[in-house]
């Protein structure tokens, strides 16, 4: 088991390396530079800045430097927010994004599983159709529509929630963003759960359990649910990686100071170090969560063995 974890982490290194390399050169090939767009920069100052950040070095040398810094755990300074290092920016924004993302994920997993199970147990009845309708709506309506509609209805019309802002992490400020972020995930989980639960309920070993006169509770919870939960487990890895690293849409619309906007802003401003930092952080999250999920999978399903 430990050997497996070790091996997985080891194989993650080349993946990470490829991602860093591709991202590094891709953004460098793009026209423009970090100090081109800022108006009012005299050529001398610009040259100075570029020299200071080593941007005049040959590309390969910059790449080697960057890799070296990365190995020492440093993402470098942000070009556009010169008072901060990239690490500091993440230290500030990531906890906020993680808070919102975790809440949304937990909400989605709980509510989605419950709704999906209810639907599966009442297949082709009213409860089932309601869940399907909800899931269809949730997965069809994009967040950049849900978010302003939530603001409009709960914020402006009913005045139940603030329209936006972080409010130093007040609970009421999190409701809107978490709801917006969770809605499509609830839909996905409910759909997955419904499908896998129906399949699980139809499986032969459930028929066996019924034929042996086991209670409904045992049939549904002990036998059907455990098998049905496997697709949800696989879903959780990528979903967690995506949710916890912040959502551009939600953070923009609700004015949340998370890390979700970093990438877009940084890419547009050619803030190379911040772009790279975001890519690395997201890749790391993805790798770690996928590993956790695979280990979790083995816990639920004894047929899966890692050794």
């Amino acid at each position: 088991m430990l050997r497996y974890v070790f091996r997985r982490l080891l194989t993650a290194i080349p993946t990470l390396f490829v991602i860093v390399t591709v991202a590094f050169f891709l953004i460098r090939v793009a026209p423009g530079g970090p100090f081109n767009q800022e108006r009012g920069l005299s050529p001398e100052i610009r040259a100075n800045l570029e020299a200071q950040f080593g941007l005049n070095d040959p590309l390969w040398l910059q790449y080697v430097h960057y890799l070296g810094n990365l190995l020492r755990g440093s993402f470098g300074p942000s070009y556009n927010l010169p008072d901060f290092t990239v690490t500091e920016l993440f230290a500030k924004g990531l906890p906020i994004s993680v808070q919102i993302g975790t809440s949304a994920l937990v909400l989605a997993l709980l509510l989605g599983s419950i709704l999906g199970t209810i639907a599966a147990l009442n297949q082709n009845k009213l409860a089932d159709y309601s869940v399907i309708a909800l899931a269809t709506a949730g997965s069809t309506i994009p967040t950049f529509v849900t978010a302003p509609v939530i603001q409009l209805v709960f914020g402006l019309s009913w005045k139940l929630l603030p329209i936006g802002g972080w409010g130093d992490g007040a609970l009421i400020n999190k409701v809107g963003p978490v709801l917006t972020l969770a809605l499509p995930q609830i839909a996905i989980v409910a759909r997955l759960m419904r499908g896998s639960m129906i399949e699980s309920l139809r499986s032969h070993h459930i028929r066996t359990a019924r034929a042996l006169g086991l209670s409904d509770w045992s049939v549904v919870v002990k036998h059907a649910l455990r098998g049905a939960v496997l697709p949800i487990v696989s879903f959780t890895g990528p979903a967690a990686a995506a949710l916890l690293t912040g959502s551009i849409i939600v953070e923009t619309i609700f004015s949340i100071p998370g890390v979700g906007r970093y990438f877009v802003d940084a890419a547009l401003n050619r803030d190379y170090t911040l772009v790279m930092g975001t890519v690395v952080v997201i890749a790391l999250f993805t790798i770690v969560f996928n590993l956790i999920v695979d280990l979790l999978y083995a816990v639920v399903d004894p047929r899966v063995r890692y050794d």
């Binding site: 991202a23 975001t278 890519v279 993805t286």
Partner: peptide
């Protein structure tokens, strides 16, 4: 390509 963050 999949492991590159897709939106990004």
């Amino acid at each position: 390509l999949y492991s590159l963050p897709f939106i990004f």
